[in-house]
Design a protein around this nucleic acid. Structure first.
Length: 460
RNA sequence: GGCCCGGUGGGAGAGAGGCUAUCCAGCGGAUUGCAAAUCCGUCUACACCAGUUCGAAUCUGGUCCGGGCCUCCA
């Protein structure tokens, strides 16, 4: 199969051809760790997790890096507010981020570079940019000279003259041009700082990605991903820094950007108070359902997050796991290939909704198959395909057993015991007693399903 | 203002010049002691107006509406 990806650079779907098929490289802008991850942070993590799984299916060696931004003004503010070192904040929230992402099926990247571990690389890149006339030092700052890079604005299709003329923010006095951006800024004694040729200071936001990509992945990488809001200025600035530091070498070949998550049709914002934390959502639904809800729309489309959408994702998983459950009498072939239609959908710019449709077609086949060989084939394809999206990763019985959150519901043994009692009652044609047992269980959130091979149950 | 996206059935959401997307919900049937699950069938669609075409939800132009970015942002 061929993989086609929508490249923000060309605003077109292109066939993905890695520069080196033996080492496919991908970098994704990760979190700034100063608070809990919200559902909008989770989207790129999940989307690019699916992409890296697909890449690994197609190529033998994929190197995936996702950074941790651990120095930033918001982090500094949080640290000052709480009267602690920034490391206290960043270590805490990095752990939480990783745990929350793991809960929604996001496996860690191969490399997770931290900004503060790359200060020497940043200084080296700034020295090089200054030496080549692409940056200048002024008042303790190091500033990128945007007009020195004529292609600036190419990714976001912005006209440099307009950028120069139309800056809506007051232009800092140390900048030569309104569109210039800061690579390094001076720190006051109460702020974190590192020694540099320009005095004690700290990095601006954009430089870390350029340096970490160069160090860990190389001068030219295949894929760079992130949220669509990063196109300008963040990725535009990365292109400027890296291209100028590398004598004009191509920096990134395919730029991928995911759409925003809105909440009930509104943009998430602290002022509206509608910021949904993954941490909180995990109390509302299983992580796998959150993952599926994020994948139920195409990654480039805006996604409107609603309680109803999450509830629907749970039902979709009920259906898929239900199909898997009917196939519990056959074994899946671990060496099987994913379903063809499913792969084709993912290969078409990660069309996850269409890939899900292929999964549901397999589920229908699972529910109608009778021949054991057929069942085994369907089960293998369903599992292989779904796993490629990070779905159907648990045993169906565990999915249906659910979480007895309050701990006041009946446990599996009790349920099995009652099912046996009901079976006895049914055998004696005492349907009143059988129905009483079933109704009792239903009142405790347990649904029974009678099948040819006995009675199954599920919570919820 | 500049640049860029969208408007699909009751809801979510793909697709795309002629062929059932899919899921949830509804309705009818099968199955079931009755249910649940499942299967089969089925009703509401492609914002509006022109144009191109044998044929347009899909292409072109325009109109209306909504959203994003324009140096905090995933």
């Amino acid at each position: 199969m061929t993989l086609h990806l929508y490249n923000t650079l060309s605003r077109d779907k292109e066939e993905f051809v890695p520069v080196d098929p033996d080492r496919v490289t991908m970098y994704v802008c990760g979190p700034t760790v100063y608070s809990y991850a919200h559902i909008g942070n989770a989207r790129p993590a999940v989307v690019f997790d699916v992409l890296v799984r697909l890449l690994r299916h197609l190529w033998p060696n994929v190197v995936y890096a996702r950074n941790i931004t651990d120095i930033d003004d918001k982090i500094n503010a949080a640290a000052q507010e709480q009267g602690v070192e920034i490391g206290v904040i960043t270590e805490k929230f990095e752990k939480i981020y990783l745990a929350d992402m793991a809960a929604i099926g996001v496996t860690g990247p191969d490399i997770d570079p931290h900004a503060t571990d790359h200060i020497p690389e940043m200084i080296a890149m700034m020295e090089k940019l200054i030496a080549e006339g692409h940056a200048y030092a002024a008042e303790g700052h190091v500033v990128f000279d945007v007009p020195s890079f004529p292609e600036y604005g190419g990714l976001s299709r912005r006209d440099q003259d307009e950028l120069l003329a139309g800056a809506r923010v007051d232009v800092a006095p140390y900048k030569k041009n309104a569109s210039d951006f800061v690579l390094w800024k001076p720190s006051t004694p109460d702020l974190p700082g590192w020694g540099s040729p320009w005095g004690r200071g700290r990095p601006g936001w954009h430089l870390e990605c350029s340096c970490m990509i160069e160090k860990h992945l190389g001068r030219t990488i295949d894929i760079h991903g992130g949220g669509i809001d990063l196109v300008f200025p963040h990725h535009e600035n990365e292109i400027a820094q890296s291209t100028c530091a590398h004598g004009g070498d191509t920096f990134v070949r395919y730029w991928l950007h995911n759409g925003f998550v809105n909440v009930d049709k509104e943009k998430m914002s602290k002022s509206i108070g509608n910021v949904l934390l993954v941490h909180e959502l995990l109390k509302q639904a299983p992580g796998e359902a959150i993952r599926l809800a994020l994948l139920s729309a195409h990654y480039r489309q805006p996604l409107d997050w609603t309680d109803d959408g999450l509830a629907q994702a749970v039902k979709m998983l009920d259906r898929l796991y239900g199909a898997l459950r009917t196939l519990s009498d056959v074994d899946a072939d671990p060496s099987a290939e994913p379903d063809e239609a499913f792969l084709r959908a993912l290969g078409d710019d990660l069309n996850t909704p269409q890939a899900l449709a292929a999964l549901f077609e397999l589920a229908r086949q699972a529910n109608t198959a009778e021949d054991p060989a057929d069942k085994a084939r369907v089960k293998s394809a369903l599992l292989k395909s779904a796993n490629l999206m990070g779905l159907l990763t648990q045993d169906p019985e565990d999915w249906f057993a659910g979480d007895d959150e309050d701990g006041d519901g009946p446990d599996a043994d009790e349920i099995e015991h009652l099912i046996q009692a009901r079976k006895d009652a049914r055998g004696a044609k005492d349907f009143a007693e059988a129905d009483r047992i079933r109704d009792d269980l239903a009142a405790q959130g347990i649904t029974l399903e009678d099948g040819a091979d006995g009675t199954k149950w599920r919570r919820g």
